[in-house]
Design a protein around this nucleic acid. Structure first.
Lengths: 229, 229
DNA sequence: CGCTAATTTGATCAGACTCAAGTGAAGTGG
DNA sequence: CCACTTCACTTGAGTCTGATCAAATTAGCG
């Protein structure tokens, strides 16, 4: 992992108070207890950590979007999640990362030294609870995603994805997708062609409008929810 | 949830010491702290809890196998995991169960009152750590399963499944499957016909031998591991 | 021993994939 | 500022894996 050179973004600066501007999940407690987090910036597609790297940190997205994924030997890829601002990722059971993390677009991230979850819980129970919350959230997300991957049609997958992304970003019905068709495909267990065709089909049905490739208006979210099953 | 009437199995008996015969994950600490677990028996296909039930307990399998699953409105089902003896299941973020749990065959289960994970961690940090371990394990499993569901072929899915079940049960190369083809299909995102055909194909290739429908000999686990990708 | 449920097998179909070409937008360099 | 390159996305045609529908076989059980 190395820090990206981006003029505007802060680099490897210690955070005086960890739980400061982190609304969604607050890493609380004494800064000394969980040695202070460091902020890093990453450029688009830059690797944050790789599968097999030593899992020395837990991360939180400050801005931008991160994807975590696993690869098969022949290159097939499954993106298990996109992490938006406020999301925690990189929690591992073992000493090793079981998936890799990359910046979807330019982004900034806080890295917290991982003093072994068990140890942490003794020192700072509240921080441990926050970590637990993050983990439970990942698990719920993973369980829903397994249902999607195993049992939903292409159109249903896209519908679910659009609704989920809308929920997690703006409340409005305009959705700006931060990721490519390739990323969407690898997240939903489809190919880019099928993703594209599904978008087109939804547009023809008047369910969505494609302002541009990455900007989508949900013109009929009722129908979208129905497709969601 | 109701307790099955099985002559041989104990029913709703308080456990004097919780972490007694639970080798894999030990729920430790003062029995008073996490009010004692109660043992229940369930018959094949009996429901342990349903999607939407209040999540008042966390469970551990003592004997037999449990499946946890989610349903779509039209009946399509995704089994997210099979839980064998020693496995913990039913951990939830919310007050509600997000999936349903049923007995695959006759089984016995301990139910631990769920004094909110956060509260628990204050009272009994060690028990909380055990719970965390269980959760992390579920998460790792879920992440691997997403890769399987999203990116593997039918044959690869079956190969992975057989190897995983073998790992989790005996060390030998004889595997007794506790679940039906339907359950396997709903776990792997396939149909029963495809599951059956994949088994047949593996048998014809000399990779496995089907002693009976539920008893499988892994005659060439090297080839099975290669298929596993 | 007969009944029921589970599994296997066969034939056909369809949804999603592959391969291939075309379109469009963004960025680069002259 | 515009031509050119590049990359992302879309669209089309044909194929294939796995689904569906249907029937046969086997196993388990009262």
């Amino acid at each position: 992992m190395h820090t990206a050179v981006l003029a505007k973004a802060p680099t490897t600066s210690a955070l005086p108070l960890i739980g400061l501007d982190l609304p969604q999940i607050r890493i609380s407690g004494d800064a000394a207890a969980i040695s202070a987090g460091a902020v890093h910036s990453y450029a688009k597609d830059e690797e944050i950590f790789a599968e097999g790297d030593r899992a020395a940190h837990v991360y939180k997205v400050l801005s931008g979007v991160v994807r975590t994924s696993k690869l098969l030997s022949d290159g097939r890829r499954q993106i298990d999640a996109f992490h938006l601002a406020g999301d925690i990722f990189g929690i591992e059971a073992d000493e090793e990362h079981r998936f890799c993390a990359e910046a979807v677009g330019d982004c900034t991230i806080v890295a917290y030294r991982r003093n072994r979850l068990s140890t942490l819980s003794a020192i700072d129970p509240e921080a441990a609870a926050d970590m637990t919350t993050a983990m439970v959230r990942s698990l719920v997300r993973a369980q829903n995603h397994m249902l999607l991957l195993g049992r939903k049609s292409a159109l249903e997958k896209i519908a679910t994805f659009l609704l989920d992304m809308t929920d997690r970003t703006a409340g409005s019905n305009i959705l700006d997708l931060p990721m490519s068709r390739t990323d969407i495909a690898d997240h939903l267990g489809l190919t880019i062609e099928t993703v594209s065709r599904s978008f087109t089909q939804l547009e023809r049905q008047g369910v969505i409008a494609l302002v541009s490739a990455r900007r989508i208006v949900l013109s009929n979210s009722t129908e979208l929810k129905r497709l969601n099953s």
